[in-house]
Write a protein that binds this DNA or RNA. Structure first.
Lengths: 136, 136
DNA sequence: ATATGTGCAAAGGGTTTGCAGATAT
DNA sequence: ATATCTGCAAACCCTTTGCACATAT
């Protein structure tokens, strides 16, 4: 909680109850799309507006408080600012799992003279949980 | 042209003039979003409907003829089926440049027991062209 | 011959916007 | 005190859908 207040302050955003609830909802499981966030937040704040969630995701994304993770064919999910990692996206159950990114793109970036700002490494497939279910 | 007819046939889709034009438009520069494709195709086929372009992008994507490349904050672009590669996406001019993907994700995938089906590696930044323009 | 594809127009639905009142600093 | 944020409702507009006609195989 205090942590999120700091995070918002660092990025020049006011700490509203709504923003903190949104961050709590995302932090709980790592990655959530707007509907999951909204359905989570209305439990503790029944009068929050979906428009407010939209506005805050945009503003917090623009200010680097959280990041959008695009998911092919689905709505984007959002995660809280964290160090470099890749995403294992299960196309069966929809969960996203973070994994360490031990890869450097220095070579290709220097060859292409590309000024790198942001990486999005998404691997799609079936997670271990869903693999087990398929077998049994 | 003949190449695209084959490509469609291999994936069980009929070769219509509209589909071939869409593939031509994409093939011309590698990556295009729906509006760019539509604006290209109407030059040679003024009566094509935007709905037809939508339907065909969906159907050709589902059948593996082409692939969707998600671009954060913008509309997805589409590319024709090709071997593994990564994308250098310029946030200034919007162009996407392909680069070889000399990386294996075998290790992380086996550690996580993940059944990998599809990779999307997108690097965002400023391309060499736009870098030069900024300096001068 | 017939399963598919196309074009049109309308429906649908997610996202954005404007504004008055509320809130954080 | 005041700049910012929230909630509501309406507007927006991208995307999808249904249907009659056309086309590929």
């Amino acid at each position: 909680m205090q942590h999120y207040i700091e995070l918002l302050k660092v990025h020049g955003l006011k700490s509203t109850f709504q923003r903190l609830q949104i961050l709590e909802a995302i932090g709980m499981c790592g990655h959530k799309d707007i509907d999951e966030i909204y359905n989570d937040v209305i439990k503790t704040h029944p009068t929050i507006s979906l428009a407010t969630v939209y506005k805050n995701l945009i503003v917090m994304n623009n200010n680097g408080v959280l990041f959008e993770v695009s998911v092919l064919g689905k709505k984007s999910k959002y995660e809280i600012q964290k160090e470099d990692h890749l995403h294992l996206i299960c196309t069966n159950c929809g969960t996203i799992h973070d994994a360490p990114l031990e890869i450097s793109f220095d070579k290709i970036v220097s060859v292409e003279n590309f000024e790198l700002n942001k990486k999005e490494i998404n691997l799609y497939g079936t997670c271990s949980n869903c693999c087990e279910l398929k077998v049994s």
